[in-house]
Design a protein around this nucleic acid. Structure first.
Lengths: 237, 237
DNA sequence: ACCTGAACACCGTTCAAGT
DNA sequence: ACCTGAACACCGTTCAAGT
């Protein structure tokens, strides 16, 4: 990238290519944007540097490694949940209300960041029992408090936490996979006929193809969530 | 799976390091073993070649690219399901029996290949509606046939298929993550104190840490599966 | 204090060449 | 027919050097 010649104002101001100075948060956000645009596989230190008008090596002043960069991006995206006004309210309307808000907040997050969500779901967490997508001690504590205060035993609260995590991962991972289809690697669209499945040997698939292609994620999410809440409720007394 | 042929095998003389000749299936199996031993991140064409006593470039005669290699490994591991005698029986004992067998077969697969399973769960499939971990048209057809023949409507069968996939992904992905903890990248054990979470601000987590660390995956899997079957059953009639 | 250039070890992949 | 050597473009990362 040809640049510089920006000797006039060191702080700010150029309309075309100004460079607000590097800092960790700016790098993480640029990383999240880059992943959403090009996929994780395409994210290299060099390319992210270029995006920020900087050499790759400069990033190492703020981020110890590419791995740590990815962890940082995940953390920074998940932290958006704290500023979701629909989620972050005092849990005084009962545990079902709390779980509903939390689940829908995480679904909004997943749909907003379909390319980052698989990382949220699959990166190793701080401790083995901190299960995605609730990747922080603070949320786990909050979850368990809501449940125990509602009358669940310690064992039941922990079991509910696990069931809730599994429910979210399964539903949201498959939803974003169907969305962007790029849940792991591979970037090219590839609309070649080879990619179009040959259904001649599968009469039922042929018949149901329209149904199978229909997107009912929202309804299914709500239905499964409802069933989960019922199941948990039945454990209470 | 050692192949036939190679009768006198004149060129495989070395006692310690004989080289049974390259073929696609051998490469895929070696890849699966390598991933289970060292993690996906460590798998490079060069290293896999070395494992097979061959230069990396030789692999390209059987596998178009590293991406395709990973897809091939996933396919070859999932294909083990066909030779699981507990799973692959005629579905004449009812749909619940069928779903139970299938679910437990996939759980065995996940536990046997904890490092490969995340790939099974996250690699883009043949068609967008072919949801992991049932990554083949054949299994989807089989699933839908079992359900419709049991009296589910087309819509209900498709919905059941989606609910079943989500259930499996959520439960099994989190189970293998807790197992190997390496659900994505990063290889080092790192038992440093920095990795040990500081729980001073989270009294409930402190109190429940033993419960949280307990492994109850099998029971929870069975309980959630049971609840799912009940939910589906209630839609019948 | 912050960024860069050059360098190292390692990748995936191509292709002409060996046997 | 099957494998290899050399080469290319690209990585992550280190470190001494620039400003």
């Amino acid at each position: 990238m040809v640049e510089s010649g920006t000797s006039a104002s060191p702080e700010t101001g150029h309309p075309g290519g100004d460079r607000p100075r590097l800092d960790r948060q700016r790098i993480l956000e640029a990383g999240a944007v880059f992943i959403e645009e090009h996929g994780v596989r395409q994210l290299s230190m060099r390319r992210l540097g270029a995006e920020l008008d900087v050499e790759a090596m400069s990033l190492y002043r703020y981020v110890p490694s590419r791995e740590d960069l990815l962890d940082g991006i995940v953390e920074s995206v998940v932290d958006e949940l704290y500023s979701d006004p629909e989620v972050y309210v005092e849990p005084r309307y009962g545990w079902q209300d709390y779980l509903l808000r939390l689940a829908h907040g995480l679904r909004r997050l997943a749909v907003k960041h379909p390319q980052v969500f698989p990382l949220i779901a699959t990166r190793p967490a701080e401790a083995p029992w901190v299960r995605p997508p609730l990747r922080s001690l603070r949320w786990v504590e909050s979850f368990l408090r809501a449940m125990t205060q509602a009358g669940f035993s310690n064992e039941q609260a922990v079991e509910a936490y696990r069931a809730f995590s599994s429910f979210l991962i399964g539903n949201l991972l498959l939803e974003v996979a169907a969305l962007g289809a790029d849940i792991g690697p591979v970037e090219d669209p590839d609309p070649s006929p080879s990619r179009q499945a040959d259904l001649t040997d599968y009469p039922l698939l042929q018949e149901l193809q329209d149904l199978l292609s229909e997107d009912r994620s929202k309804q299914e999410f709500d239905a499964a969530l409802d069933a989960l809440l019922d199941r948990l409720d039945s454990q209470l007394t």
